[in-house]
Design a protein around this nucleic acid. Sequence first.
DNA 1: TTCGGCATGTAACTCGTTACATGATTTT
DNA 2: AAAATCATGTAACGAGTTACATGCCGAA
Lengths: 171, 171
Amino acid sequence: MTGYDLWKTFDQELAGFWRAKHSQIYVELKKLYEEGDVTYQIEISGDVLEKKEYRLTEQGRQSFLEWLGREEKIAGTTRDSFRVRMFFSSDLPVDERLRLLKNQKDQHDERLNALQLSFDQYAREGIPAYDSPLFGDYIVLEEAVIREKATVYWLDKCIGYCENALKFPDA
Amino acid sequence: MTGYDLWKTFDQELAGFWRAKHSQIYVELKKLYEEGDVTYQIEISGDVLEKKEYRLTEQGRQSFLEWLGREEKIAGTTRDSFRVRMFFSSDLPVDERLRLLKNQKDQHDERLNALQLSFDQYAREGIPAYDSPLFGDYIVLEEAVIREKATVYWLDKCIGYCENALKFPDA
DNA sequence: TTCGGCATGTAACTCGTTACATGATTTT
DNA sequence: AAAATCATGTAACGAGTTACATGCCGAA
């Protein structure tokens, strides 16, 4: 693939589980090339335009497989500024909090719907075989659906707490 | 608070929902000071040791409140290298996958247990009032518990898929 | 007196983003 | 002929980490 192809892939299929801008991709490809993990061949498209078709070297393939099998410490909770807002939410009037919460919920609902659509596609075809390259795609998609559902569940709970506070301001 | 106090706070109470190293904290405090959002007073501890006791200025308080009320676009899915491993997991033998999955599950189980302990503490005391400063702490903790539960649920599903593949290698 | 915790910083580096910059090819 | 998309890069910057660097204070 060329850097451009990779960029489009990140932008489309991979969007939602890893992103990268072309500015980063070209830089990383250069590094990988210098370290001998990839090579490229220049193809001419049209009369002049040069495209660099990259491919993994054997060394690159080996490093990849080695990386793939590594056990990894789970990351400390990722930084999420909405969570910080909620942490300090007692500094905000209840109606403001509700506005923020509902805004957040709308966005996650929308994302969940989109994910669910892709996931249902798989469900109709059945779970991909564990040795099919689609298997990874499937479980990663399932994770995203589960995660969004959990988030929406939490937001609903928070909205519930706040609406209760509005209804019974004395409690 | 001093930079040191902030660091300890990040390391203890806030750990698990936002982290910061002292090297970053001192730099950020300097910036905030230059922008007029905080001031400090030098206190002498013992004979010589200088401590800078920081506090929010009125301007700082205002910027904070303005920030707190901002609606925010949800972030594109955060980068998680374990997810990438699972995406490419068809390149890994099933027993290797199971090792990675179980390793991950153990770690999340452990974190979930710790979170659940703190959360149960609150449950015994009842949900903090919506205008109490503990309210933010409570909902953020609840989010963490929900998130870890969702993660463990997903990992269990994946483990199930793989164990099934081991039991019936012909299917 | 020595060791652990208190206290404050700087420097170099990584990963990723935004903006800058250029030009060819294909489609309308 | 213009606009969209293909194609490749560099520069400046921001957030965060790791490592470097220094020195005081209290307790055992």
